[in-house]
């Protein structure tokens, strides 16, 4: 069975981030590309810090940081949350803002 994929955000000094009204501008100094990110991508980048994350660990970290484990009946099940976070990390990896291995 292959090892679970892990993700790490670009180092902070590689990016210049400017939050605007609806979007956050992100300039990547390594590629000289400008990205416009909608929420929650900037928040995910910031929450990743400098470490490598497995999806399940990062989902738990986000749940704790953003209080996603409330008692609301409308809460998405944990498996759905993990799928959403995996999709967002994949998008960030395609932009080159997150490393995957």
């Amino acid at each position: 069975m292959p090892a679970e994929r892990r993700y790490r955000a670009a180092p902070p000094d590689a990016l210049a981030c400017v939050p605007l009204d609806a979007l956050t501008l992100v300039y990547d100094r390594r590629s000289a590309q400008t990205h416009l990110l909608a929420t929650p991508l900037p928040e995910i980048l910031a929450a990743m810090g400098g470490q490598w994350w497995r999806i399940s660990d990062f989902a738990a970290h986000l749940a704790a940081e953003f209080d996603l484990t409330g008692d609301s009946a409308a809460e998405a099940p944990a498996a759905d949350q993990r799928a959403v976070i995996a999709a967002r990390l994949h998008e960030l990896a395609q932009l080159g803002l997150v490393e995957a291995r």
Partner: peptide, 17 residues
């Protein structure tokens, strides 16, 4: 814009704000 690199980004992001 793309040719100017980060100075262009900094200038334009300041201007739009």
């Amino acid at each position: 814009y793309a040719l100017l690199g980060e100075p262009g980004f900094a200038s334009l992001s300041r201007m739009v704000q």
